[in-house]
Design a protein around this nucleic acid. Sequence first.
DNA 1: CGCCAAGTTGAAACGCGTCAACCGTAGTGG
DNA 2: CCACTACGGTTGACGCGTTTCAACTTGGCG
Lengths: 253, 253
Amino acid sequence: MTLLDTVVMQGLDSHGVLTADDKTLLLSLELNARRVTAGEVLWQEVADVDLFCVVKEGWAYSYRNLGNGSMQILKIYLPGDIIGMRDFGFSRRLAGVAMINEGVICPFSYQQLFELFARSSSLAAGIIATTVRQQAMLTERLVYLGRYAAHERLAHFLYELYLRLKRINAVEENGFFMPLSQEQIGDALGLSAVHVSRTFSMLRDEGLVERDRQHVVLPDPQALARLVEFNDTYIDESLPPAFQNFLSLNRIA
Amino acid sequence: MTLLDTVVMQGLDSHGVLTADDKTLLLSLELNARRVTAGEVLWQEVADVDLFCVVKEGWAYSYRNLGNGSMQILKIYLPGDIIGMRDFGFSRRLAGVAMINEGVICPFSYQQLFELFARSSSLAAGIIATTVRQQAMLTERLVYLGRYAAHERLAHFLYELYLRLKRINAVEENGFFMPLSQEQIGDALGLSAVHVSRTFSMLRDEGLVERDRQHVVLPDPQALARLVEFNDTYIDESLPPAFQNFLSLNRIA
DNA sequence: CGCCAAGTTGAAACGCGTCAACCGTAGTGG
DNA sequence: CCACTACGGTTGACGCGTTTCAACTTGGCG
């Protein structure tokens, strides 16, 4: 998975907005590959903001450790995602990031990002739009934490993962690999690990979710989507036409 | 309150990053003032994304209406805030926005924003950083919704408002005007209106919050800050040095 | 004066957290 | 190869925080 494969960038590319130079520039963010182990901490909260990362393989998550001893997981990162843009414009990290399983990441610097912004307004717009989309996912979880019950939160969480994984061809016959422990899922959804277990059983009994260790199957994804009233614009949509027009014009100027 | 008064822009200005042209450009976003009534809906969910707004007077909020009949309030906007950047890069609104009390707003178009981006990378960076800061506040609420009890959520909410209002000189003797109903507060914090009432009583009994109708006093703001372990970097911080350096260099080039 | 929205208070129900015991599986070392 | 251990997951009992429903109060406003 490269950044060129993301919805936004593909959208820009298919409309001829990206030049060959743009593409090399974008790929230059992914030159520095590094293998990382399961559980490895990429950075802690309050660390200096020095770099960002593209995930090539494996899953990661951003988190906050709270004073009351619990943890809130903010976001799950999958291959192709950019990590760290949350901290763009801050001097200190607002959240820690750690790997869930082993994988490969490509770190790049503040400097590199600035250069990219300066050299291609199309890429700048694309990266900003990607960042906004990530935050839209966060907003969606905020809504679920505020106003929905455990089974709806879990169903929504799984369906969102399903959609994101499908986009990167990591779904086979409605099933996918999910390396998260139930404790981690609880930390993401604001639930206890015990209740996550019960909720899984509940969804299984209703025929909505099958699970065997780290393998999850959604026998009827549409039924799940209806249950959680899933609005997939925030996850699947490419840039709007007006946006692309502007970028095309700007490229010529 | 103008955009030039925001923490980020003031930071840029005081470091000499903003030119006179930049300032006129920024102020040009606020030429179109319009008076709006209490409760007026600026736009609905799923409406086309055509414009953004600067709030000059009054409070506004963004919200989602949910299938189960409840509402989740995402963010409270105060004078000087930009509304709508959440939808940047989408063709349809992800959330509705309405006024809480009467006020004045200044709408500006996608087009205007693009022009501003094209003509001043400093302003572009400033607006992006402002947007990222708004998202950081959302993230903070996500954490509170996930892992904290009602009294902590309310305390955090009030203290954040207190800090934001202080920045725009809307706090006198630790007290401020707050036009929100308890139902709206509940919709923001994921609580029922009834429980918000009980929680206010609780905080009052502990001497942390006094309230008379729409006037709130925090007798001991520091005590509140300790209770919620408030981390104010996400709200008060200006752009990091490295960022400003880049902008200064870029301006000359 | 009377109406209506907003806030308060009480009682009961319920969802979820917590604690604890137990189970299955994978990994480890003898 | 097989015990031993550690970890993640499951299940039950119980308590607590929050919701819900309902009755009542208060203040603002036509």
